[in-house]
Design a protein around this nucleic acid. Structure first.
Lengths: 187, 187
DNA sequence: GCCCTCGGCTAATGTCATTAGCCTTCTGGC
DNA sequence: GCCAGAAGGCTAATGACATTAGCCGAGGGC
């Protein structure tokens, strides 16, 4: 007999992430998670309140995951190099975890926990822009532009939305250069 | 007795769009559509093959809708003005129809009908860039950049993903300027 | 040794999608 | 006018899910 690790909310979310990775966000179902846990579906309710809550928790985990990776990627660099690194790291994350990214909440505004961790992720972007001397609103706009670029590209790419054969790396490089140019003109 | 219009695939899609508008993409259910049509759920199968097909058809309709609007918006202008107009029209469409936009397929690659109409929409963007003298790959990259910008911004905005109070019009204007700058430097 | 909580289970309900099979109505051909 | 057949609706049934209620055994604190 294998020693059954006790089921906890954390392990349930772990399993849920596995389901998302394999079956996509829509494949995330309590039944699927329960089966992987070797447990009857209703038993999950001892650990999570509902499918909706589980999805929220998965979203939080993804946000944490991204925050961690991007923070690590960007550490030790600054200026254009940092921005470039961050943008590449973002694209790489989404390419490596397309389903997870699709499970990321676009509107973390509602759930307070999600909002907190989403704020951290934003903070990484914001901090990466430090050194360009942006003040107040200008920094907010610059962060938003960055977010639009990385999310726009990544979401289309991960959905397989770019049909033509032209090099996507080249397109992404152009986006990076475009963004860096505005930063330079602004500071 | 009101004269019952005969149900056709087209009217079913019309009703489905109404459901999407009100309840979001996830609220689109055969049961909901059937109820609005005043018909039992299985009866819908006389008109659409499955829920999946209905979603595809809804996606097509949204793409057609957008294509039509953007074409009209951009007619008669060219250069920076045309690009600016297109970008504003895109944002306006998504703001006016957030749920519909969320129902738009990001990967029209699979269904041939969707691919065709998606190609038309891309064609509008592509045509808008005429006059910048872009050749071959450069035009493709420029179109992609445009798409990334408008989709990135619109999808975040429509999801309520911009939390801070700073003016979103300003952010969008900056994105437009950013894009126009790259176009000028390229042509 | 007793009680209680934890974490699992089964049974039941309700919502959906989907399939099968029936029935009525209209239409075209004769 | 009559009939076949297609169109378009319906009911019944099945199977996946989420969710709720209520049962039960094991283990720990006392």
């Amino acid at each position: 007999m294998v020693i059954k690790k006790p089921l906890t909310p954390t392990t349930v979310v772990d399993v849920a992430l596995g389901v998302v990775d394999e079956d996509g966000p829509d494949g995330l179902t309590l039944a699927a998670v329960a089966q992987r846990c070797g447990v009857a579906t209703p038993s999950l309710y001892k650990h999570v309140a509902s499918l909706g809550e589980l999805k929220t928790l998965v979203g939080v985990r993804v946000l944490e995951d991204m925050t961690e990776q991007f923070t690590a990627a960007v550490l030790g660099s600054s200026g254009d190099e940092a921005v470039t690194t961050l943008m590449h790291a973002y694209r790489a994350y989404v390419a490596a975890n397309p389903n997870r990214y699709a499970a990321m909440p676009m509107d973390p505004v509602h759930d307070p926990v999600q909002r907190a961790i989403a704020g951290k992720l934003l903070g990484v972007m914001y901090a990466t822009l430090r050194g360009y001397g942006l003040e107040g609103p200008a920094a907010v706009h610059a962060t938003r532009r960055l977010r639009v670029l990385v999310h726009g590209f990544a979401s289309i790419e991960s959905a397989g939305g770019f049909g033509l054969p032209e090099d996507l790396d080249e397109t992404y490089d152009q986006l990076i250069q475009m963004y860096l140019t505005t930063l330079r003109n602004e500071s």
